Simulated scan of single mutants.
Amino acid sequence: MINLEDFLAVGQNAIARRVVQQSDCADNYENDFKGLLSTPRLIHWALDASIEAIDPYLPDDYASISLGVSFVHTAPTSIGMTVTVHAAIIAITDHDVTLDVKAWDEQGEIAHGTHRRAIVLKEDVLKKVEERARLLMIRQANEQIKEMN
C-alpha cells in the first residue's frame, strides 16, 4: 500500500460548478417540488468535487471509492441557478480520506457535510468484481439445476 501523504495533503481541495438543469431536479421523484434541485443530484456533485480533490494526484494504478456520505441539504435551488460545491481534505489515514463538503448558490449555502473515500488499487477492485460475478454465475447455475430436478 502507498503512503497517501506522499500524494495528498490536508487542505487539498477542488470545486465543481454546475448550472441547475431540468434533469437535475426533483421532478424525477414522486414529490411536489418540481423545478428544484434534487438532493441526490447535489450529492452526486459533492462526490464529483471529492473525486477531483483526490484522484488526479494518485498514481495511475490507484483510485478512490466512496465509503460514506453524511450530507445535509439545507436550502432549495431552482433551475438556472449556479451551484458551487467545494470539497476539501480534512483527514488522511492509512487508506482513506475524509473531506469537508460545502455547497452554495447565488443566495448562499445550500448544503454541507462530510465524505469518506478509500484509496484502492484499481486491479484489486476489478478482481473482486470478477470474483463476485463468477460466484453469481455459479449460484444461478446451481438454481437452474435444482429447478430441473
Rank of each mutant, 00 (worst) to 15 (best):
I92F: 08
A118P: 00
L99H: 04
D94N: 14
N3T: 07
E52R: 06
D6R: 03
K146C: 11
S78M: 14
K127G: 01
L121T: 02
E147N: 15
I15W: 00
A14R: 00
D94I: 01
F7S: 00
R41Y: 06
P40V: 06
F7D: 00
D32G: 00
D61E: 13
H73Y: 15
L99C: 11
N31M: 07
L126Y: 11
A75P: 02
Q12D: 07
L136W: 09
D105K: 00
H95V: 10
M81V: 03
A111S: 09
D60Y: 05
I43W: 03
S70I: 03
C25S: 14
I15L: 13
S70K: 12
Q107V: 05
V20F: 08
C25W: 10
T114N: 03
L135Y: 14
I110L: 07
R132A: 15
Y62L: 05
D96Y: 14
A75T: 10
R117T: 07
T93Y: 01
T84W: 02
N3S: 13
E123H: 13
S50W: 03
T77M: 11
R139Q: 15
H95A: 12
A49N: 10
E5S: 04
I145K: 10
T39G: 06
A46W: 09
N142K: 10
E109W: 07
V129H: 12
K34M: 07
C25L: 07
Q107F: 15
L67I: 06
I89S: 01
F71M: 00
T93G: 08
T82D: 11
H112K: 12
V10D: 04
H115W: 04
L135Q: 15
H95G: 13
R41D: 01
D6S: 05
D32L: 09
E123Y: 11
M1S: 15
C25G: 07
F71H: 11
A133H: 11
K34E: 12
D55V: 13
A91Q: 01
I119G: 08
Y57A: 00
I110G: 07
H86G: 02
V101M: 11
G113V: 01
D27C: 06
L67T: 10
I79D: 05
H44R: 12
I51H: 13
I51V: 15
L4T: 04
Q22L: 11
K34G: 10
H115M: 05
D124W: 03
A141W: 05
N3M: 04
N142I: 02
P40M: 03
A26N: 08
M148L: 13
M81K: 12
V101W: 04
V69I: 13
D124N: 10
R117S: 05
S70Y: 14
A91I: 05
V72K: 15
A91H: 11
D61G: 00
